[in-house]
Design a protein around this nucleic acid. Structure first.
Lengths: 151, 151
DNA sequence: AAGTTGTGGTTGAACTTTCAACCTCACGGT
DNA sequence: ACCGTGAGGTTGAAAGTTCAACCACAACTT
């Protein structure tokens, strides 16, 4: 054994289930999006964020903050999707340092395509497996984790 | 909006809390291990798996299956840690294609060093935030997710 | 015994993420 | 006006992961 101050057996079991389950869900989500639309899940989230914004437009930093991505990460990702024609950049007139990311029609189409399979996948992986009560418990727990460890 | 068949509002909230919370926890775990011992969390898990095996030794494929890593991923990771002197490879006498990964003393020492901070971090991120009841609920939920979506 | 198929594992290239450095511009104080 | 500080964003390199191709050997078939 590694350390006397390890977790209790019960905690250890919870932790290992947690790690395994969250990794499993994440990798399945990723796999499906990659297979069906050649898109990493993180990129998909950027498209979703833009699709919900007024005029399909957001400041780069707003996207980054909302998804808790580093600016660098977002910059690279948007660059890639700009090449694919799904996003364009626009200057910000009121702050010349700033940049807007704008979802294109092509981007919206890709998103719409991806959404069906993605939603089905989320259901199959998560919601179909849990009772309504467990879904509520999970929501509550995750909200707590966010609140306690937020920036 | 993207699609008529999106999740219900309630499901959507749960899903977004889930994504945000699990990413937050994972990235904090990663950050701490990276900062304190220059080690990605996935590499840490490999060391843990080896430390718990008889003779600190496992077949490569056993590690991969246990952690649900691809063989390629494991191969690269072990190569890296072999360079650092934390793991060595050994041939398998009974199957000449096979290879063992063996934790070195140096690897064990790194693991012991990392463990304290890591455990504290897990507590702070997860267990300290939840009631005992919620911890049990989470364990149950994650066990279900694994079972339903396992290979 | 030879050929086929499958398993264990590695490799290199492509891609994503992180990290540090950097550039431009905004804003506050003087 | 000018300087310092810091925010918004990009860039290139390094690190980690995935993907497809591959090698060596095992196991099964005939």
């Amino acid at each position: 054994m590694v350390d006397a101050r390890w977790l209790t057996l019960r905690e250890q079991q919870v932790w290992r289930h947690y790690i395994a389950a969250t990794r499993l869900v994440e990798s399945e989500i990723d796999r499906q999006l990659q297979r069906d639309v050649g898109l990493p899940a993180t990129y998909f989230e950027i498209l979703v964020a833009l699709s919900e914004a007024p005029d399909h437009t957001l400041r780069m930093s707003e996207v980054a903050d909302q998804l808790r991505f580093s600016r660098s990460r977002l910059s690279h990702a948007v660059a890639k999707m700009e090449q694919s024609g799904w996003i364009t950049r626009q200057e910000c007139p009121s702050d010349k340092r700033g940049a807007f990311a704008v979802l294109t029609d092509a981007g919206l189409a890709v998103l719409a395509d991806a959404a069906r399979g993605h939603v089905n996948n989320v259901r199959q992986l998560l919601f179909d497996v849990l009772t309504t009560e467990q879904q509520d418990q999970l929501g509550e727990i995750c909200a707590l984790l966010r609140k306690a460890n937020e920036v």
